[in-house]
């Protein structure tokens, strides 16, 4: 049941990402919604679920890239597994942090999301560069802005998930009081 929920969340994030991302092609501002879901699941469910979610989500994302098509100098544009590996590491470490530390306030959550996004960027771009498959130049600002955007979306998602059920309950209680 939980696995189905996680798969649904990843697919929904992916669908949202591919549907809406084209309206925000401006690179640096792009949010990786799938990464946000992976970190969220890892923080709420622990390292094992986090890493499996990361593996699944990363592999699905990799599979949707135009992998075998040659880019500059005959290099492939994408390789299945690099995104999976990056998200697996992020999912595992975020899960470990979630179990070892209290990450229940917006600021610690922001820090975890931000650090996870930076780590994802470093591993993802590092592997592509290491394997000489893709050239990223010096994307420090881009990674920074993207990580901050991911962190904001992650914190907002947490707040919404936590506050919304309470809001519904409160509204019901207020209505019942009025009826009396």
């Amino acid at each position: 049941m939980k696995a189905a929920g996680v798969i649904l969340a990843v697919v929904a994030a992916l669908a949202l990402q591919t549907t809406l991302a084209r309206f925000f092609v401006r690179g640096a501002a792009a949010v990786d919604l799938v990464l946000v879901v992976v970190v969220y699941v890892a923080l709420t469910s622990g390292p094992a679920t986090g890493l499996l979610t990361g593996t699944f989500a990363g592999l699905v994302q990799d599979a949707l890239l135009p992998n075998a098509v040659m880019g500059i100098g005959g290099l492939p544009n994408g390789v299945i597994g690099i995104g999976g590996l990056a998200k697996t590491m992020v999912g595992f470490l975020a899960g470990v942090i979630g179990t070892q530390f209290i990450v229940s306030q917006p600021l610690p959550r922001f820090v975890v999301f931000f650090a996870a996004s930076v780590m994802h960027g470093v591993v993802f771009m590092g592997l592509y560069t290491l394997l000489d498959l893709r050239h990223f130049g010096a994307p420090y600002a881009e990674v920074g802005v993207q990580s901050a955007a991911n962190a904001v979306v992650g914190v907002v998602a947490f707040q919404m998930v936590e506050l919304l059920p309470g809001a519904v309950e409160r509204r019901r209680a207020a209505k019942s009081r009025l009826r009396r």
Binding site: V79, I82, L85, T88, M89, G95
Partner: peptide
């Protein structure tokens, strides 16, 4: 498996590295 997430992590990472190597 859940209690031994470290082993699971290593196994998954190994699998992914093999997958990447095969394609490269």
């Amino acid at each position: 498996i859940r209690q031994r997430s470290g082993y699971l992590f290593l196994a998954v990472m190994l699998g992914l590295v093999l997958l990447i190597s095969a394609q490269v």
